[in-house]
């Protein structure tokens, strides 16, 4: 069991190491001739106006919140799904009730207009 996670740890290290080393090697091998025009912010080819970290659409935030609620709640369903073959019909009905509450939340958000991309 513990050796499983050892493998995951080692593999994570390798997965970070491979692209890291590739980029490092490329950075060493590639030419380096920066000049002020080349290193200016590209954007769309026009001269940049103002700073980059601008205000953004509030809708992203709303969707972020809905996602958070849903993702956390669906994770609760995983233990139930793993034990699905062992639990009785009652537990299944309870889970369906849980899903119905989730659906209710979705319909609420829908009716309130949180799912509209305006």
């Amino acid at each position: 069991m513990l050796s499983d996670w050892l493998y995951i740890a080692i593999f994570t290290g390798i997965a970070l190491f491979l692209p890291g080393v590739a980029i490092f090697l490329a950075a060493v091998l590639s030419p380096k001739k920066p000049d002020p025009i080349k290193t200016s912010t590209y954007e769309c080819g026009m001269e940049t106006v103002g700073e980059a970290w601008v205000q953004f659409k509030v809708q992203y935030y709303v969707f972020g919140l809905i996602f958070l609620a849903f993702d956390v709640e669906t994770v609760f369903l995983y233990p139930w799904a793993v034990a699905f073959n062992k639990v009785g019909l009652f537990a299944v009905l309870e889970a369906i009730l849980f899903i119905a509450i989730l659906l209710g939340g979705l319909i609420y958000a829908w009716r309130k207009g949180a799912l509209e991309w305006v």
Partner: peptide, 25 residues
């Protein structure tokens, strides 16, 4: 592999350089 790495002015160096590695990883 042998193209120049252009680092534009004003980038936040740590996230900028870590992002490609993290995507692949």
């Amino acid at each position: 592999f042998i193209k120049e790495h252009i680092t534009p002015v004003g980038v936040d160096l740590i996230p900028y350089n870590l992002a490609p590695i993290l995507s692949v990883a």
